[in-house]
Design a protein around this nucleic acid. Structure first.
Lengths: 152, 152
DNA sequence: TGCAAATGGTTTCATATGTAACTATAACGC
DNA sequence: GCGTTATAGTTACATATGAAACCATTTGCA
């Protein structure tokens, strides 16, 4: 069954254009989750991501947080300013390198994490429940391949 | 092979968290394309999306453009203001309903489209080239299912 | 008719985000 | 040691985005 070959200059069908579909799906999913914790804790997506990596990797510096979240350092700096202010993240100065910060979740931060992480997982479960096992397996495999570092 | 069952409160592994992966992938892809036409034509992603739907559906109103692009009407209004200003989109008033606009690509707008659409397709091809036929088929199927309207 | 409610679209304002400049500290080369 | 360069992080500025208020017109209906 030969597929119609669209001339390159024909109008784009956004609804079949992969980058567009990814964008719509991704935004819908992320926004749904973010709305949830935003409403309950006044926590932005960037702030939550910072907390999530600090939950896993205690003692990171701001730069390391930026690396792990793929956010830029300004965004991390701002998120940290607010998180430290609200008392969910602790910030100390590295021994032997006064430029570096040493970050971690506070008690209160862990308490937030214990609520938000399950919420996030629940959303993910909900999303994945639309797929069967075979589709889930393919999805992971496909994402792995698409995300492989651009060779260029 | 039983997969470890993560307790809900365990730290999220962002790199395995589907919404996060989608977000990273989607942003990387969209941004790469947008950088391209932004640099060449000073055209934002929202502006390009408006042009893309007008290429397919001539004579839409602003609200219809918003529906088709899933953008909100303010974003569309702003994109149109700029596109009309640069002369890539024409705007008239609907006969019989003076609230509604009647939009379309101008000659110049079509010329831009003839350059940008192939560029966008090229990026998509590039992305899809990382997958084999079977994976591509599954991807479309999976996206269809994930994007099925939330029943809730 | 004529007036309340709805619709198309723009403007305003408040917030978010990215880029570049800046400060402080540390590392490097001589 | 000491000047240059690099690194961690913040601040300032300019632009983008979203929510709500707003204006004009049209629709619904007593």
């Amino acid at each position: 069954m030969a597929e119609e070959h669209h001339p390159d200059h024909a109008p784009l069908e956004l609804e079949n254009f992969l980058p567009y579909r990814l964008s719509i799906l991704s935004n819908a999913v992320s926004q749904a989750i973010a709305d949830d914790y935003q409403r309950r804790f006044d926590l932005s997506m960037t702030e939550w991501r910072v907390m999530a990596v600090l939950a896993r990797f205690d003692g990171l510096s701001a730069r390391e947080v930026a690396e792990r979240t793929l956010m830029d350092k300004v965004a991390v700096s701002r998120a940290l300013a607010k998180l430290v202010e609200t008392g969910w993240v602790t910030r100390a100065t590295h021994d032997g390198d006064k430029r570096r910060s040493v970050l971690g979740l506070s008690e209160a931060g862990w308490a937030i994490h214990e609520v938000v992480a399950p919420m996030a997982r629940e959303h993910e479960r909900n999303l994945l429940s639309k797929l069967d096992d075979e589709e889930r397996t393919w999805l992971v495999r496909i994402l792995d391949k698409l995300q492989a570092i651009e060779p260029k």
